[in-house]
Nucleic acid binder design. Structure first.
Length: 626
DNA sequence: GTTAGGG
DNA sequence: CCCTAAC
């Protein structure tokens, strides 16, 4: 808090023009004043400031704004001084309205606290020091960061003090129309209106700031903020007044009309849509700002709202809410609209992965439908169950294939790519019972699939029932098919649901990793992937033992392709992909050396299987190094 | 759980 | 990098 004792004022650090630049600072400067008996404002004395400060400090530790506190504050201010005096329009009496002390540092602290309490459920406004006023014409100026209505403020250390007529959502509701509900103080209605009283009529009804002179604008400013201004910049004044009246930063520099503290005119719609947009992302109202209401019009309220940013940025937005509904409803919406958390990176990845699969599936044959689609996707046609002669019920869906209507069983894909050997052998064992229709269908599917299956999760090759309008290529009751199906479905019975849902993020192997791998193989031997991973790749958590094995395999392959072979020079002058950093020949040589050393059983590793050709080549090449 | 090997 | 079999 910055206390300018020499002037007996409590001022905000942020200067007015500063606010214009930053847009997030508090534009309001509050002045601590003493209210004399006749309602005139007198600059507060140093003692007043100190007393006020003392009060703030005392109040700081109070978690909840009890009624006592409220009364306390009010009593204090009623008896001594206040920061803002605003005369009541009806009876001309003066009334304390709003007090707030704020520092930017506090704002930062609050932002941190808010970050901690994002997901907290609604909690009573704790640090909202509020004094209730019996007067209906309310002008509430405050700093959004300092006044929290819904945020968990148990950790807040705000020093802000707001004298307002409502301190909680409940009170907002109750006070929306009929004001004095929990007013614990005696109304110190000060009689008499003096010359320092702003002309509030200038703010009544429709205010077209463009039509006002600088002087009138200054008067409107005074009526809005309760203090005078010497600024003669018309545009600035208009914006400030509009901001003050609507409590929105989102104010056009000109051409807007303010009516009943709402912007009407060219940017009103934008404002609303803006609000909607922000409310979608889970904004929470942090403070009630304005009570319009010189005449009991439909209440509208404005809120400071802050949007949490995961990166802890201190962005604070001010959003105006136009709402003709009772405030209770509005508050209810605000309450139930819990802040939605930004999806985590991981979550995003998974989502995009699903989407990718989704789009893939659309263009792929139904037989390629990934296994997880069973869970994630709804079939295009409502599935129905198909029973075979044994009474086993298989879920099937209907799809079109080459003009045919095909019933494709819903089965999880258990294997990708080509049919398993045992599947083929199984099918081959009973070729005579494989109906032609099924064969045809499978062939069609396989043909369609081509060999792209490496990147697509394909459904298992299952018999399908093909039917068309003209002919029925039905093949259901054959023994072989039943067995086939039984086998397949039994395999489906224990699906690994998550399989294939996500793909590991590709990480290119760095030279450093390769060196580590080679060293590891040299130390522990090829095949001890688990050990190598533990000891040499402790800091590379994303490298699994399988990865190491695969990489080693690739390295060995590389020794055969990239290493300039002594014998068959120029045998494979492959195009070198410039984007791929070639592994230095020295490393490849070492890989080759290790491989040959260990594969020959001279090492300490398990015997390595060779194909005849491999053995020949390796032995031939290896002799030169050994 | 780890490894080998096909894809 | 994925998947499965085999251990």
């Amino acid at each position: 808090m910055e206390v300018d004792n020499s002037h007996g004022t409590l001022i905000n650090k942020s200067e007015e023009n500063d606010f214009e630049k930053k847009g997030t600072s508090d534009p309001v400067v509050y002045q601590l004043v003493r209210v004399e008996g006749d309602g005139t404002l007198v600059p507060a004395t140093e003692d007043d400031v100190l007393q006020f400060e003392h009060f703030l400090h005392n109040d700081e530790k109070v978690d909840l704004p009890s009624i006592e506190d409220v009364g306390h504050v009010e009593e204090f201010f009623n008896n001594d001084c206040m920061l803002l005096k605003k005369p009541d329009l009806e009876d001309g009496s003066s009334k304390l309205e709003t007090v707030e002390v704020h520092t930017q540092k506090l704002g930062a602290d609050l932002e941190e606290n808010r970050l901690q309490s994002l997901d907290d459920s609604l909690s009573p406004p704790s640090e909202c020091r509020v004094i209730h006023s019996q007067h209906s014409d309310k002008l509430l100026t405050e700093q959004g960061d300092n006044v929290t209505r819904q945020d968990n403020a148990s950790t807040e250390t705000t020093k802000s003090t707001v004298l307002n007529e409502s301190c909680s959502a409940e009170k907002d509701k109750a006070d929306a129309c009929s004001r004095p509900v929990c007013d614990t103080s005696t109304d110190p209605s000060v009689s008499g209106v003096n010359s320092s009283m702003p002309d509030f009529s200038i703010l009544r009804g429709e205010v077209c700031l463009d039509d006002l002179t600088i002087r009138e604008l200054q008067e409107a400013f005074r009526a809005t903020f309760g203090r005078q201004t010497t600024v003669k910049d018309k545009i600035w004044l208009k914006r400030r007044i509009t901001m003050g009246l609507t409590n929105s930063y989102d104010v056009p520099s000109s051409g807007c009309v303010v009516k009943d503290y709402k912007i009407v005119g060219k940017d009103a719609k934008k404002d609303i849509s803006d609000m909607d947009e922000r409310s979608k992302i889970g904004l929470r109202a942090t403070s009630l700002v304005i009570y319009p209401g010189n005449d009991g019009d439909s209440p509208s309220s404005s809120y400071y709202q802050s949007e949490d940013q995961q990166d802890s940025s201190k962005r604070v937005e001010r959003v105006q809410i136009h709402n003709d509904e009772p405030q209770g409803n509005l508050l209810g919406k605000q309450c139930t609209n819990k802040r939605t958390r930004k999806p985590t990176k991981r979550y995003i990845e998974e989502l995009s992965d699903i989407e990718t699969h989704d789009s893939t599936v659309k263009i792929s044959s139904p037989a390629k439908r990934p296994a997880h689609d069973e869970v994630l996707m709804k079939p295009r046609v409502a599935p129905f169950n198909e029973a075979d002669s044994l009474g086993t019920i298989y879920p099937t869906r209907k799809d079109t294939l080459g003009g045919f209507s095909v019933h494709v069983p819903y089965v999880s894909r258990m294997r990708r790519g080509r049919p398993r050997k045992d599947f083929i052998s199984f099918a081959d064992k009973e070729p005579s019972v494989e109906p032609k229709g099924i064969q045809t269908a499978v062939e069609v599917i396989l043909e369609k699939d081509g060999d792209k299956g490496n990147h697509l999760r394909k459904a298992p090759e299952v018999p399908v029932k093909v039917s068309s309008e003209k002919g029925h290529i039905e093949a259901v009751d054959s023994e072989g098919v039943r067995n086939l199906q039984a086998k397949l479905y039994s395999a489906v019975a224990k699906p690994k649901i998550n399989r294939g849902l996500t793909r590991k993020h590709h990480r290119a192997w760095t030279l450093c990793e390769v060196v580590k791998l080679v060293d590891g193989v040299a130390r522990f031997g090829a095949g001890k992937w688990s050990e190598i991973r533990k000891l040499s790749f402790a800091s590379y958590s994303y490298r699994t033992s399988v990865d190491l094995k695969d990489k080693w395999r690739n390295l060995i392959r590389a020794t055969k392709t990239q290493l300039p072979a002594q014998k068959d020079q120029g045998a494979c002058p492959r195009k070198i992909n410039p984007s791929i950093i070639p592994i230095p020949p020295s490393i490849l040589l070492r890989v080759k050396e290790l491989n040959e050393l260990q594969s020959q059983g001279g090492g300490f590793t398990a015997p390595v299987k060779f194909s005849g050709q491999d053995r020949k080549v390796l032995q031939g090449k290896g002799s030169g190094f050994l």
